[in-house]
Design a protein around this nucleic acid. Sequence first.
DNA 1: AAGGAGCGCAACCGCTATGAA
DNA 2: TTTCATAGCGGTTGCGCTCCT
Length: 264
Amino acid sequence: MGRSPCCEKAHTNKGAWTKEEDDRLVAYIRAHGEGCWRSLPKAAGLLRCGKSCRLRWINYLRPDLKRGNFTHEEDELIIKLHTHLGNKWSLIAGRLPGRTDNEIKNYWNTHMRRKFTSHGIDPATHRPTNDQHSSHDISVTSISFSSVAAPAPEGSSSGSGSCHQQEEKDDMKVIGVDMKLDEKIGQDVEPYSHDLNLELRISPPYQLRQHHLMKSVGKSNRLICFACRLGVQNSKECRCRCNGRTHFLGLKTGALDCRYMETK
DNA sequence: AAGGAGCGCAACCGCTATGAA
DNA sequence: TTTCATAGCGGTTGCGCTCCT
């Protein structure tokens, strides 16, 4: 037995919203607030599914939405957050005021993904697609994007022959991809002088690097639980009661502990 | 100028999480 | 504890627009 439909599909409109429908939805929410989405369409006089109303409001009609192109700063932040969160679009959107998860998802799947792949980088892993190493023996992957065309440092192009191609129409450019073996963990890495340097350290299981990570975070040596590393400190799954730890980029630091990043 | 290909984005679908009864 | 309704999320689809031949 399947789930009952969220609305009577036979009597609901689908497809693009009309101006009149938008106006009705906005007027209703302004008057009554975001209440029960299921009952909203009927109350607002809309022949729409509640789910559809919710999507329309969140993704398009909300007054605090920022429309228009993504800025370079937003680009960087999206890359940074995607490195650590993956396809958690709602979490990423939560760090980008005025942007919706759907917008960011679309932007990633169209613009960013193409830029990554055109430079020979897997957008899912942020690693070179022709990477010959297995995942367990790579510890550092530095992917740097810059709006300024700067010469790539010598020897920084391993694994990505397309990094230096100039034919890219936009001004985004991969400066360097650097991979180092596991024994490099903890060593100082000569920084590139770029606008942004993302360093993703793909490492052995968290506990093995606990001491190093605690030092880098500058906190006590208390172990944090799995729930906190996922950024859900206040959940009932929390075993360590580390609520309220410092935020970084608005994220609970625990969420970043297993793979941390540096920006320059 | 016409038509096909590719792209971008809004919207939908199916699933999971959550909370109330 | 179980069941069910609802909210929310991520993946996917489809349409309209632009570009290219």
